[in-house]
Amino acid sequence: MPQTPPVISAKNVWKLFGPAPEKYLAGMQPGRTFEKIRADGYIAGVKDVSIEVARGEMLVIMGLSGSGKSTLVRCFSRLHDISGGQIMVDGQDIMALNERDLIELRRNKMGMVFQSFGLLPHRTVLDNVAFPLEMRGQDRHTRRDRAMEVIRLVGLEGREDYFPRELSGGQQQRVGIARSLAIEPDIWFLDEPFSALDPLIRREMQDEFLRLQAMLGKTIVFITHDFDEALRLADRIAIMKDGAVEQCDTPDRIVMNPATEYVAKFTKEIDKARVVRARGLAAPLNGTAVEGQAIDGSATIHDLARLLVNDARVALPIADDQGAITGVLNRQKALDLLLGEA
């Protein structure tokens, strides 16, 4: 992945809420803590964040309520003007864009689903979904066809003439999702997009986004409070606390090697066997002789549970997608992970 230049690259981004954030930031000594900053009358919504999102990647942001997830995403889309640092989107410094370019960027490249939906109350479902298309000046007929297509996709067919207040919370959320699907942006910001959906539809929607990401190479920044969802979707997970990113890494490494105390606490309750893949636990070959059937490195330990219990070998060979042996998995280690240390 790191070969192509990142789609979003944030360097030392700060977003302070308060009377004169830029001035304060300029005069602030480095390393000041969140509490100290708050004592000075500022809220650090985003605190010195540096992060990159590669093309076609799905980055999931997690963290407690108020940790700055939404704020960070709003900085990426320049709904907030950042107080310090730099954000490049597709190689452009978004803080340097003028109004026209910013509008163009949002019309053509970015889409967002809002935490509390942000539907226009006076427009029907159809008109809400068609809204971004209308703003781009598409003619009525085309935009209606396209809107109907995505409305069908999110399962709201037959409701297209309803007004938002006539819909349930989950249905409203699906209108918000449909609206962002309608333009199929390259870069997608999803702020808890499925929080109000029932498990069934939630899964369907997750699949839809996974499909889009895989087929069309969309870049997605996804906020969620649901770890299972994160694991299902994420290429990488970023954990935020008090505006700062504590750790940003692949799911297994977050679980296996938490960078800080906080991340460890955050991931303590998770069933590690569901997260860690065989290749993540494997040791390098280093000339060890391996025997017998190789196992798929991308399977989680949980997927391999039955095999691990029944197999008698001490070390199991691990194969990559092409079938080449890449390492060995110590069975005892895997069983410990699966069942907990004895």
Partner: peptide
Amino acid sequence: SHEVVEAGKMSGCTRWQ
């Protein structure tokens, strides 16, 4: 509501729109 405003901005509205 500011989310409605933001939704408008993300839809690429000009000032007049």
